[in-house]
């Protein structure tokens, strides 16, 4: 049996068990939209600051949902994989001819799929509430693709944490840290509106900034390779690093001969 069909089987299992757990799905949809609603209303007055790139704060903030959804995907993917390791389900899979990386990638599919589902919902809800995408329909599709790509990359973070620690609690314990990263980015304001220099420095070093800016460029501003390419590069980098790390650790965790 080919690795692709094995991957499909393992991914299907991961997706079905994920969507059978409302506690995994509901927060991914609810939290980013609530945050969007609150921020869009609470910070709407900043659009009156001279030079703010848009007159509608929801246009500015919508992309944060995608990144936040991807963070949730990372944690769900990681928690699911870690609990598989803990219960011995990965051992069960390791006794079949499936390759190690197939087991790993398949296990993250559930988390990634929530992000895909979430992304579509964020976009639809955003459009209903008046989000206007400057790059049009094609831009919206590219935005969605970038969001999904980011979610897959982030699922790698969860997978790595899971394999390295083998404990769902440990993976969940990392959530606040990822959450912190989101708040230390251009989530609420563009970089040149951040007055405190130390904060601006943190924001510049934060990879999430580039993901947010890349997606945001599609919504406000139009096609711009200088924001889009760094976003793709950052997501690719995260993906390569985390999945490599995860499959290394997996070799130690599942010592199959």
């Amino acid at each position: 049996m080919s690795s692709t069909s094995q991957l499909a089987l393992i991914a299907r299992r991961s997706v079905s068990r994920t969507f059978r757990q409302p506690v995994l799905v509901v927060p991914v949809i609810a939290f980013p939209l609530i945050l969007l609603a609150v921020n869009a209303a609470g910070l709407s007055s900043v659009t009156e600051l001279p030079g703010f790139p848009t007159k509608s704060y929801i246009n500015f903030a919508i992309v944060v949902c995608f990144v936040q959804g991807a963070l949730f995907a990372a944690i769900s993917a990681g928690t699911e994989l870690a609990s598989d390791i803990q219960t011995g389900f990965t051992d069960r899979l390791a006794l079949t001819p499936a390759k190690r990386w197939v087991v790993l990638a398949g296990a993250t599919a559930g988390g990634a799929s929530i992000a895909v589902f979430g992304s579509v919902i964020y976009l639809v809800v955003g459009l209903i509430f008046g989000v206007e995408i400057d790059t049009g329909v094609v831009g919206a599709l590219v935005l969605l693709a970038l969001a999904i790509y980011t979610a897959i990359a982030f699922a790698g973070i969860g997978a790595w944490l899971a394999v390295a620690t083998g404990s769902p609690q440990a993976v969940q314990g990392m959530f606040p840290l990822l959450f912190v990263l989101l708040f230390l980015s251009t989530m609420s304001l563009p970089l040149d509106f951040i007055q405190k220099e130390w904060f601006a420095t943190i924001v510049e070093w934060n990879p999430l900034t580039y993901l947010i800016d890349g997606m945001r460029g599609l919504v406000i501003g139009g096609w711009d390779a200088s924001t889009l390419l760094p976003a793709i590069a950052v997501a690719t980098g995260i993906m390569v690093i985390t999945f490599t790390g995860a499959s290394r650790s997996l070799r130690k965790r599942v010592q199959r001969t």
Partner: peptide, 27 residues
């Protein structure tokens, strides 16, 4: 740690990152 970390992050992110909000007309 969790009950301290969350508020701290908000303090840093809001007080540090959003200080320009004080320049909004009427604030």
């Amino acid at each position: 740690i969790p009950s301290l970390a969350f508020p701290l992050v908000f303090l840093v992110a809001f007080a540090g990152g959003l200080s320009i909000v004080a320049d909004v007309p009427g604030f």
